[in-house]
Write a protein that binds this DNA or RNA. Structure first.
Length: 114
DNA sequence: GCTTTGACCATAT
DNA sequence: CATATGGCCAAAG
């Protein structure tokens, strides 16, 4: 069987996005990570941009910052925002509540004087 | 085969 | 919180 690495990777990414439960969101890097492709965040974006898989909850995929990956004046932006709200995801000004990344150990240990 | 582009990410200012 | 910079990878010209 001709298992193409790139094609196989795309398949895993799509599977990871499909595994996203309604009401939850994840960043491109997060999706790539779950797909077993750490550091391929851009690949996930390209996949959604080039390939439009039907039934794929692409609207649950956001940036790491929790912001929509589309420009505020793009149709995709409005579309994603509306879909997220329809699933119970509070979207404000194109931003979604995302858990902050843990602070650096240096900041945690040497940051606050103690 | 090099250059450009892209629904990105992390860090620093 | 916004902007700027460097890095990363893969597809198209």
């Amino acid at each position: 069987m001709a298992s193409d690495g790139t094609n196989d990777a795309a398949r895993r990414i799509l599977a990871a996005i499909r595994a996203l439960p309604a009401g939850e969101v994840a960043g491109y890097g997060e999706v790539a990570r779950r797909a077993g492709l750490p550091g391929r965040a851009r690949l996930v974006a390209r996949l959604l941009s080039t390939v439009a898989e039907p039934g794929l909850p692409w609207h649950r995929v956001l940036r790491s910052d929790g912001r929509v990956a589309f420009p505020p004046d793009s149709d995709g932006f409005v579309e994603q925002c509306a879909r997220l709200r329809a699933e119970g995801v509070p979207v404000a000004n194109g931003r979604v509540r995302m858990p902050r990344r843990g602070p650096s150990l240096d900041e945690t240990l040497w940051g606050p004087p103690g």
